[in-house]
């Protein structure tokens, strides 16, 4: 129980501090256009990294599995239809079907 309290409390504090740091230090300031150009590209770079590390790696090893195919199928749905819900549902269904078959 005390382990849970430390884990949850610690993670909550660390997360809050990380989220607060930028706004506290840089809030309300006008930043140079060059900086804004970099910022506008942070989201695609970070999102792409989240996707590939979750689908193409298992721990410290590069690995693929049924979920890799499922996520790719979901990606096609998102790309063709723009539906986020369709994307996650197709990803789960394709993964589940492949696991049942293989």
């Amino acid at each position: 129980m005390s382990t849970s309290v430390t884990l949850i409390g610690g993670l909550a504090l660390v997360t809050a501090a990380i989220k607060a740091a930028g706004p506290i230090v840089l809030g309300g300031r006008e930043l140079p256009a060059q900086f804004l150009g970099v910022i506008s590209l942070l989201a695609p770079a970070l999102l792409a990294a989240l996707v590939v590390t979750a689908t193409l790696a298992d721990g410290k090893e590069l690995a693929v599995g049924e979920h890799t195919v499922g996520v790719a199928a979901g990606g096609v749905v998102a790309w063709r239809t723009g539906s986020i819900i369709g994307c996650v549902v197709v990803a789960a269904v394709v993964t589940a079907v492949l696991r049942a078959l293989l």
Binding site: V51, A54, H67, A78, W79, G82, A92
Partner: peptide, 18 residues
């Protein structure tokens, strides 16, 4: 078995595409 582990990365794929 339900493929629920694919949901989290798929969520980010959809975000990335948008």
């Amino acid at each position: 078995k339900l493929g629920l582990d694919a949901i989290y990365p798929a969520f980010f794929v959809a975000l990335l595409i948008s």
